[in-house]
Amino acid sequence: MASHSDIPNSAGSQRRRAKKGQAEAAEKYSVLLPTYNERENLPLIVWLLVKSFEESGNNYEIIVIDDGSPDGTQEVAQQLEKIYGSDKILLRPRAKKLGLGTAYIHGIQHATGNFIIIMDADLSHHPKFIPEFIRKQKEGNFDVVCGTRYRGNGGVYGWDLKRKIVSRGANFLTQILLRPGVSDLTGSFRLYRKEVLQKLMEKCISKGYVFQMEMIVRARQLNFTIGEVPISFVDRVYGESKLGGNEIVSFLKGLLTLFATT
């Protein structure tokens, strides 16, 4: 593992000095997949990821961070590691459910790529957009690229009117109060430069939806550049998606906290 720590630095300096063609060969993308009871979805998302990366020809690795799922997600992950190779599928499980933020920190520690892609493992985020994220990142040399459901061809599938109203309303309120310059703050399909994600993780303290929002707000504060790519969000094919009163209240609390403190 020790040799891994100097890879991002050497890749970074290469990227700055080398000509474009060489620099592209040096890029590596680490996908972080935090899972909890995703036994059915994990093989499918991995299959789609492998397909997408093989078609685009980008160098990649998939890091599965399972929080001790009782449904046997880890056993399925081990099968996938055998099928696709342990250089492509890295299993970095944790003993119990510890939350998304720490899952990212845990994942970054094991990532050898110079870019990190975070996404949900429940098939709501389709890997076909990753090449677009990569293209966008190169186009503007961005530090962060966000998937957005609210712009261009972006959108959602499987949401009723109530859910849409809540989503649009929350987004509008956020835009008015925080003026973040990014259209989708609560989405969690993003590409980060590794060192940028590391820095943001040190700064962010919120949880849940607010955590994703805070990442963008902090990124703006630190003058990181952010690009956007429209994505279609297909709500959980397997499993149940939830948006209860509790979630709305904690979202509002988090939004007001950011409003008053940043």
């Binding site: 389709h126 972006g154 959108g155 499987g158 109203i165 509008f172 279609s232």
Partner: peptide, 19 residues
């Protein structure tokens, strides 16, 4: 604004079919 954005919120039927 809210009404307009709600009306223009894409339903990604094809994306779901493809998936």
């Amino acid at each position: 604004t809210l009404g307009l954005r709600l009306a223009n919120f894409n339903d990604c039927e094809e994306a779901a079919q493809e998936l």
